[in-house]
C-alpha cells in the first residue's frame, strides 16, 4: 500500500487525534472526585425553600427571582410551595443552614466552572473555622 504525501497526512491525522482526544489525556492519571456539597448540620436542619431535586438544578432561577423581588419591589416575604414563609435573603436565609460558600456553593460550581454573579454585589461570606 502506497500512501501519497504520507508525512503530511500522518502529521495531520496525529494532530487531529491529539486535539480530539484532549479529554482523555489532559486528566490522565488524575482522580476526578465527585463534588460533595456539605450536608446541613442536624442542629439547624429545617425544611429548605424547595425540594432537593429542584434546588440542584434551578436554585439560580429562584435566587434571581428573590433578587428582583427584594431589590426592585422591596418585598422580602417568600411563601414556599409547602406554605412556609421565608425571608428572601441569600446571606441570612440560605447561609443560615448552608454556612460555607467553599464547602457548599463552590463544590459544584467549581466542578463545572460556573461563576455565578451573586458575589458581584454580595460580600463573599467569611468562612467560619
Amino acid at each position: 500500500m502506497k500512501l501519497y504525501n504520507g508525512p503530511q497526512i500522518i502529521v495531520g491525522l496525529v494532530i487531529f487525534l491529539a486535539i480530539f482526544t484532549y479529554p482523555l489525556w489532559s486528566g490522565a492519571g488524575k482522580a476526578a472526585p465527585v463534588p460533595k456539597p456539605q450536608p446541613v448540620p442536624k442542629s439547624v436542619a429545617t425544611q429548605c425553600v424547595a425540594d432537593t431535586a429542584y434546588m440542584r438544578t434551578s436554585h439560580m432561577t429562584l435566587l434571581n427571582y428573590w433578587r428582583d423581588e427584594v431589590v426592585r419591589d422591596g418585598d422580602r416575604l417568600y411563601v414556599s410551595a409547602s406554605g412556609k414563609t421565608f425571608n428572601m435573603s441569600l446571606s441570612n436565609t440560605c447561609f443560615e443552614c448552608h454556612t460555607s460558600k467553599v464547602k457548599f456553593c463552590d463544590q459544584c460550581h467549581n466542578y463545572l466552572a460556573i461563576s455565578p454573579f451573586c458575589w458581584d454585589c454580595h460580600l463573599t461570606p467569611k468562612e467560619k473555622k
Partner: peptide, 25 residues
C-alpha cells in the same frame, strides 16, 4: 470539554465567559 475534563482548564473558562458576555437575562 468542561464536562469531560477535571479540573477545567483556564482557557476553557475564558471561552465560556466570552461566549456568555452579553448576559442575556
Amino acid at each position: 470539554a468542561r464536562f469531560f475534563t477535571e479540573p477545567i482548564a483556564q482557557w476553557l473558562q475564558g471561552i465560556e465567559h466570552l461566549d456568555g458576555f452579553l448576559e442575556f437575562n
